[in-house]
């Protein structure tokens, strides 16, 4: 469904981390595809490479990271991810970012209204319209400019700070919002409000969102598409409903069994080992050391996305089923 007119598409993104004399492939051949107005979930445990691949896909890979391969397609233009500088220049209009720590993202020396104004100043908004635009942006994110515009970040709550960061992100009128754990620092009741607000934005303005999260239960309610990452490899991706109804990859199954449930408590089944506990070799499945179904073939290679039952699963278990 998202294949007909993708807004944002990453293909074969591969990133190495270089630290001293050690070189490690931390993101291997990651691809994903987001349609306009879609909320797409990117889930994985810490260190699985979800933030790194998002940052590199908009040209913000930090030092110590070397993008090896991959293309990014946004609004019909295809660019090489290796050219981080070019990516950053071309994507800074049209894509906005939202981070976990909203208070850290805001300047402590500027009143919230002025922060939003700074973003507007980069776009040559006529002086006369500027104040009206700021009030409008505050209204969109559910804040009152008259009350909060003059306050500094330390004077407002975490939820309000995240909304101000949101207003800054929307000030450039983006087509895509990359929200990296936007609610992890918030309380559950505030979190729900924030996510509902994001969902409404998608419905009203056709904004697409990539929701990066470590919590599977967070994406289940709001996203329509999903990629699950483990040690820099996509293990399963596609339609969220299909994946949750019938998880196929052993890692997805493991993640779902490990999450405690509020309504029907069940025995938790932990996944043994840790994300990077096994081999970090390039041409093999990196989940095999934690996998209950591991077999010798897992060390030999990883099938690239077997299309079955509404999703792609990257596991040799389903190799025969597809052919």
């Amino acid at each position: 469904m998202s294949a007909d007119a993708p807004l944002f598409q990453i293909d074969g993104l591969t990133i190495d981390s270089i630290r001293a004399d050690r070189r490690r492939r931390i993101v291997q051949d990651v691809s994903l595809c987001v349609a306009p107005g879609q909320i797409y979930g990117l889930v994985g445990e810490s260190g699985s490479g979800k933030s790194v691949s998002m940052m590199a896909s908009v040209g913000l890979a930090t030092t110590g990271l070397a993008v090896q391969a991959g293309t990014v397609r946004f609004g019909g233009v295809v660019q090489q991810a290796v050219d981080q500088r070019g990516l950053k220049q071309n994507l800074s209009h049209g894509i906005s970012l939202l981070f976990q720590n909203a208070k850290g993202a805001l300047s402590p020396f500027l009143a919230t209204g002025a922060q939003v104004g700074r973003v507007l100043d980069r776009q040559a908004i006529p002086r006369a319209d500027r104040e009206a635009r700021i009030s409008e942006l505050f209204r969109v994110v559910g804040l009152n400019h008259a009350d909060l515009g003059g306050k500094y970040p330390h004077q407002i709550s975490g939820g309000q700070a995240q909304r101000v960061a949101m207003a800054c992100a929307l000030a450039t009128d983006p087509k895509l919002l990359i929200a990296d754990e936007p609610t992890t620092a918030l309380d559950v009741t505030t979190e729900r409000e924030m996510l509902r607000f994001l969902k409404r934005l998608c419905e009203d303005r056709g904004l697409a969102i990539i929701l990066v999260a470590h919590n599977l239960s967070l994406v289940s309610e709001y996203c329509s598409g999903l990629s699950i990452l483990h040690a820099g490899q996509v293990v399963e991706d596609g339609d969220l409903g299909a994946i949750f109804d019938e998880p196929l990859h052993p890692y997805t199954q493991g993640l779902i069994a490990a999450v405690p449930d509020v309504d029907e408590p069940h025995e938790l089944i932990p996944i043994a080992g840790s994300v990077w506990g096994g081999s970090a070799d390039i041409d093999r499945c990196r989940f095999s050391h934690r996998c209950p179904f591991a077999m010798p073939r897992c060390d030999a290679g990883i099938p690239t996305g077997i299309r079955t039952r509404g999703r792609n699963v990257h596991c040799v278990l389903y190799d025969e089923a597809a052919s």
């Binding site: 709550s157 939820g159 309000q160 309380d187 559950v188 009741t189 505030t190 979190e191 729900r192 409000e193 919590n215 599977l216 239960s217 967070l218 289940s220 309610e221 949750f244 779902i256 999450v259 449930d261 509020v262 309504d263």
Partner: peptide, 25 residues
Amino acid sequence: RALLAAAPRIKPRAVDPIALRGELM
């Protein structure tokens, strides 16, 4: 009730009975 309803779930509940207003001020 609001706290329980707000908790994220793998299987979302169809109804969302109760929600608190705003944030703790």
